[in-house]
Design a protein around this nucleic acid. Structure first.
Lengths: 122, 122
DNA sequence: GGCGTACGATTACATTTGTAGTCACAAGAC
DNA sequence: GTCTTGTGACTACAAATGTAATCGTACGCC
């Protein structure tokens, strides 16, 4: 049952997707740059993620090592589709149009997207 | 101050973006297809949206007519950027890649996106 | 002109989320 | 062998959210 991952929880997931298994203290350290949570807060988020089956633990001495139990790609795919469904009726092009209009597309971005599309048409 | 619009509230906003001013009962009627909320629930959502300054009201006899106080485009732009920032570091191409890989791009979608990009390069 | 009724306003309450303090306990220090 | 301390578990609590019932009141009916 893919429970919903909240925003704060997501920040924790990102750290673990980047540097798989870590103990609570190290996760806290890595988050210190971007968030000003206490260690206790990080631990709460970890517990919630474990009970949501988003993280798996592995005992290492008296600590736990945490690692993702879901793939980032799967998570991102789910979130993306949900988002595009909700705001754009499931179609991607209006989102691209939206970015195009707000001038948020760099030439490199454009080139990359075109390359992707070429690939698809092959 | 653009307060956060929740998922349930968003559904109400969509109705109003589509059929500008409507009274509570009509909004409830239009939502009946997709949601199974009671009229009371819809009214709560309307009140919250008004206090968040997302909706404006206009008295019509003893009723209110509700209408959006923010543009759908502005809302969608904000949400899109927030989303792409959070999941893709602000770059759109990884999102497109994500859709490409999960086979969620129809040929029409592809054509539309290409047309958009052509436009930009001009 | 009293009365039901349709409205918005107010109140209610469980769940989720953000944020954090406290507790119990095992491992290591001495 | 006791004492400290670092850990996860448990508890706490306010705000936001989902969902809804109830209240007060102005209008229109008869």
């Amino acid at each position: 049952m893919a429970e919903r991952i909240s925003d704060a929880e997501h920040a924790v997931m990102e750290v673990l997707w980047d540097h798989a298994p870590l103990d609570a203290q190290s996760i806290y350290d890595r988050l210190s740059g971007s968030q000003s949570w206490t260690l206790a807060t990080v631990k709460t988020l970890l517990s919630r993620l474990v009970s949501k089956d988003a993280l798996a633990t592995q005992a290492q001495g008296r600590k736990f090592l945490y690692r993702p139990a879901i793939e980032r790609t799967a998570y991102v795919a789910g979130e993306s589709h949900r988002f595009v469904d909700r705001l754009f009726g499931g179609k991607l092009s209006p989102l691209v149009a939206q970015f195009a209009e707000s001038e948020k597309l760099s030439p490199e971005d454009i080139a990359e997207i075109e390359a992707l599309l070429q690939e698809l048409k092959k």
